[in-house]
């Protein structure tokens, strides 16, 4: 009886299958897949004023992107800033975040509470985070500088977002503040998966806490560190709302917080250039390649590291 029913289940009429699959497929293909594929093609055409197609122009859009002003100055600047945000966020996450996660792992009862506390900023929208810190860091009425002055650190009460030299490091700190709960959670889950017997065995062999960390904890966390690093890379290459809220669409002051995503937005929707569509599609393609190449490279590096350990 059961076998007969199973057979009947397999012979579902094609009409039913189509009715089940097609709505999702149509929506996905038309609104997401088709635009994604055409984006790559867009970059190879010249466009006149909006969506008027002028003609195929090979790689001219890329040539414009790499040789013409303002891109020759703005593109390297934005890319550099993106990389600074990535490296800065990664360094702080993998030191502070890892320290917090490793220490939390020893406090079984308080762990969940602290994890939730560290994760709260991650749960607030990046735009809100950006505007919140704009208010908190405001030179005149901002509470951060008020506290610094109150404890006698007047020299540190600086225009954090107004000074071109300070704006980017401030952006990094705000970004770390927002995201740190994420690595803390992931490292916490990774640590929970390490068998306590390993640490006990090491302790019997006389290994100190620090040695245990270097030789047991850290190597076993390599896969999670890899995941966090790659996700941080993708996140920082694509971040838009946070820099938009902190420095506006032009990355003020003086382009110090300009990002590839902001440059893309300005080129597509604010430049008014006749071939804006072609050039900004080229830029989007470059960003896509950068993200993909970085993520694949990261995966290879970490896979090799993992292979070395095991």
């Amino acid at each position: 009886m059961s076998r007969a029913a199973k057979g009947a289940g397999r012979r579902t009429p094609p009409v039913v299958i189509a009715a089940f699959v097609l709505p999702a497929f149509a929506l996905f293909a038309v609104v997401l897949l088709y635009p994604m594929l055409s984006a790559l093609a867009y970059s190879l055409f010249e466009w006149g004023g909006g969506t008027k197609l002028v003609g195929f122009n090979w790689f001219d859009n890329f040539v414009v992107l790499f040789t013409e002003r303002p891109f020759t100055t703005q593109l390297p600047n934005a890319l550099f800033n993106n990389l600074v945000v990535f490296v800065g966020t990664l360094l702080l996450q993998n030191t502070i975040g890892l320290f917090l996660a490793v220490q939390l792992n020893r406090f079984e009862r308080a762990r969940r509470l602290f994890q939730v506390l560290y994760t709260t900023p991650y749960l607030v929208s990046p735009l809100v985070v950006g505007y919140l810190w704009t208010l908190l860091l405001a030179p005149s009425f901002g509470p951060v500088n008020a506290v610094l002055r109150a404890v006698g650190l007047d020299a540190l009460a600086l225009p954090w977002l107004g000074d071109p030299a300070l704006a980017l490091p401030t952006l990094v700190l705000v970004s770390v503040w927002q995201w740190i709960g994420f690595p803390v959670l992931l490292y916490g889950a990774g640590l929970a998966g390490i068998s306590p017997e390993l640490h006990e065995a090491a302790k019997i062999d006389g290994a100190t806490g620090l040695r245990q960390f270097w030789h047991i904890t850290l190597p076993l966390l390599v896969p999670v560190i890899g995941t966090v690093s790659i996700l941080t890379y993708i996140g920082s290459m694509e971040s838009f709302a946070l820099p938009y809220a902190l420095g506006g669409v032009s990355g003020s002051p003086a382009g110090a917080t300009d990002m590839l995503s902001l440059l893309f937005f300005r080129t597509s929707f604010q430049s008014g250039a006749p071939n804006a569509l072609g050039v900004s599609s080229a830029l989007a393609t470059v960003m896509f390649v950068l993200v993909l190449a970085g993520a694949l490279l990261g995966r290879r590096l970490f896979a090799r590291q993992e292979a070395k350990i095991s």
Binding site: Y34, P35, S38, L40, E238, S261, A284
Partner: peptide, 10 residues
């Protein structure tokens, strides 16, 4: 799919 890439054709 990187969203930024698809936004213009969208």
């Amino acid at each position: 799919i990187p969203f930024m890439l698809a936004i213009l054709p969208m």
